[in-house]
Design a binder for these strands. Structure first.
Lengths: 241, 241
DNA sequence: GCGACTTTGTTCCTGCGTTCACAAGCGGCT
DNA sequence: AGCCGCTTGTGAACGCAGGAACAAAGTCGC
């Protein structure tokens, strides 16, 4: 949880100074990126911060500040050149680099993710699949054969996997995580509802579907909507967003 | 984005005063809940904030503050009674109420979610499935037949669906969302990578897998780890968490 | 029964993130 | 060419969340 100060990085092509980018802004930039590419497909070449913010569901001031982390690539009185903006956001997010992902745990969810078109479409090709089930080993899923989890370290290193996706049951998750780390994977997307223990240089993002539902449940009750036991809000609802 | 002040709500059984609960705390409480239920299964009856915080991956001070939103149910010098804590967190999160969820879009991901054991296990039974594909209508998935999306409003109202899960392709998402809202659904979990437009009284949570990957990509580049084009951090890496 | 130890609950404080508001800058119109 | 209006980019303020530190409180041992 350390806070680092200003820095810069070299792309190997040119040097660009970058400020410290807030975590929340990174997530929003990814959203802007998708809105922009969608707009470009529709032939839009220029967008104002107001319009882009509306499409992304954020405040226009927030959007402009986020874009200022990327650099000043807008034209006052006109807006942003969509193609140019996409290019710079992609560079900031590191999407100009080679990424490849491994999916571990080919159950229902793993199967779906192995076939998820959103991954390759956005520059994240799935290059390895793993499971413990002997019946699955060698079976092609989405055109890629499944390997045994024991071979995770070797195969991940060989295929230069940069992101590991864990879709195993809870008891297996930590072990699989350790294997991925042993294979040189430093980024992990975890769908198993456990908190993984990893070295400091490994980044884990957890997607917990049950937690998402429980948050929705909380808001519904606080709002007093819907069906079920009577809920009577006496004061304005006690929720800060 | 309005901020509401202190409030209280009636459970219909007893009145409990509750403070304003930060959004981030709600998410963590759901995590504590899972850790606690898992501990109870192992026979643990009492936990200190230090231990629970470690298992949930948060600071113990943060944990105690979060639990203070629930109420003061710990014993100084001892810790928290696990069963009692679970009960109160569940009530705060609204898990004592009846919830049922509808999954729309029975593709790979929708199929996986319809069979996801984590939903019923945590009190969120899947009670309706929808798709546009005529070949799927009537086919049972996880023991439940698929209905046509046109019947969303009627069936959701009839079965008292409280949460809608959208797994459709992007172009269909907004239309499906409108149908769910028409059917009285006020909570939506959206897996389609679009920002949905909804009335103020509807809560949407988006799970965007590509965005998660892009955030991981950003951190990896900023860290300078991994394979690919050379990345040279000159100053300490410019990332604030 | 009393003291010491443990752990909670809370207060204060620091720092980040978001929003407001405005000056600077650029294009279009006359 | 000059003015007008629109939009960006940023400086400042506000509000929230997280962490440290401490006082209150209850238990265990003697």
């Amino acid at each position: 949880m350390t806070v680092h100060e200003h820095g810069r990085y070299s792309t190997g092509v040119e040097d660009l100074p970058y400020r410290s980018v807030p975590e929340a802004a990174v997530g929003r930039l990814a959203v802007y990126l998708r809105v922009l590419t969608s707009m470009i497909e529709q032939g839009v070449t220029t967008m104002s911060s107001e319009v882009l913010a509306g499409a992304a569901g954020v405040n226009s001031a927030t959007l402009r500040k986020d874009l200022s982390y990327v650099g000043s690539y807008g034209t006052r009185g006109v807006g942003y050149d969509t193609a140019r903006l996409v290019e710079h956001i992609e560079r900031l997010l590191g999407l100009t680099r080679h990424h490849s992902i491994a999916v571990v745990g080919i159950g229902n969810l793993g199967h779906a993710l192995a076939n998820y078109p959103g991954f390759p479409d956005r520059g994240f090709p799935v290059t390895a699949l793993f499971d413990v089930d002997e019946d699955l080993i060698g079976v092609p899923v989405g055109g890629l054969p499944v390997d045994h989890v024991d071979s995770i370290p070797a195969i991940c290193a060989e295929r230069e996997v940069t992101i590991g996706v864990i879709c195993t049951p809870v008891p297996a998750a930590q072990g699989v995580c350790d294997l991925l780390v042993a294979g040189g994977v430093r980024c992990i997307l975890n769908f198993a509802p456990v908190v993984l223990q990893v070295p400091d240089d490994v980044e884990v993002r957890r997607v917990d579907l049950a937690v998402e539902l429980q948050i929705l449940s909380f808001h519904q009750v606080r709002r007093g909507n819907g069906i079920g036991p009577v809920v009577e809000p006496i004061d304005p609802i006690a929720v800060s967003r």
